[in-house]
Design a protein around this nucleic acid. Structure first.
Ligand SMILES: [Mn+2]
Ligand SMILES: [Mn+2]
Ligand SMILES: [Zn+2]
Ligand SMILES: [Zn+2]
Lengths: 138, 138
DNA sequence: TTATTAATTGCACTTCTGTTGCATTGTTTA
DNA sequence: TAAACAATGCAACAGAAGTGCAATTAATAA
């Protein structure tokens, strides 16, 4: 049993061949991925299978969904300390206007926002857009 | 020439009947609206016309688009002091999980976020989700 | 091991939102 | 008034997300 198989198994996900491949693929990328990205990487696989695999990962808490404002949902593996199912891991996300990649800034938490009287915060989403480190390195 | 006609005109928008109606409708709502919301309010109007009207408003800088994370784009009139075209008016938005309305918190600006080395911010989007003042008033 | 049951995958199809092309109608300007 | 331009109506398209169901595959009980 490999590292990945153990990871999936311990989260109540049956480690099928497809799931292991997708997990591995997501793990080796350091940016968030859209379903179409995964599709491109596994051209012979069914879109629905990829879709449901990612959804399963999400439900089981090993992947979180990111709305980066592009209109396409992105997904990224949860970092070791990420507790996105428990009380939502409020780290921010960065979307590069140049390379179009979206990445998790896991250690950058969303600052506390004080709201007007009567408003109660339960969750928050902060996306910063600009130029990423790779693209600004010229 | 009414107030609204003057407003449209001064922003380079020809004040047609439809545009005046839509502007009026958006002005009397205090929450952001989806295209479908406007559609519901003007059942006899063409969706495309509504769509293009809003887009025109946006281009001319009297309306700004809001991505509240619901997957449906929302639009709201810019407040008097809003300079969303110039350098992006970075106020935050609140989405109520109860009534599903999204509102502009115009005076609540997005706090400055310091990013890792090499990252340059150009824009930001902050959406806080929770319970709005109307819904919490029980 | 074999039969039964449950989970996963493949395929087809649907819904929703956003968007565009183009002909028609309406408005402005020479 | 005629030409030029802008707005609208209608049709159709594109992309993403999601569902139903049959066919496979894997797990479990007998
Ligand atoms: Mn993340
Ligand atoms: Mn706003
Ligand atoms: Zn980049
Ligand atoms: Zn509410």
């Amino acid at each position: 049993m490999t590292e990945i198989e153990r990871k999936l198994d311990s989260n109540g996900i049956r480690p099928t061949a497809m799931r292991i491949l997708i997990y591995k693929y997501m793990a080796e990328k350091n940016n968030a991925l859209a379903l179409t990205d995964v599709e491109q990487a596994f051209l012979k696989a069914e879109r629905t299978t990829l879709y449901r695999t990612i959804k399963t990962f999400e439900e089981k808490g090993i992947v979180h969904q990111i709305d980066d404002g592009t209109g396409v949902l992105k997904y990224a593996l949860c970092e070791p300390g990420c507790n996105c199912e428990i009380d939502r891991d409020l780290h921010l996300h960065f979307h590069c206007n140049s390379c179009d990649k979206t990445i998790c800034l896991t250690q950058h938490k969303i600052p506390h926002i004080n709201l007007p009287e009567g408003f109660m915060a339960e969750d928050a989403n902060l996306v910063v857009k600009g130029i990423c480190d790779s693209c600004s390195a010229y």
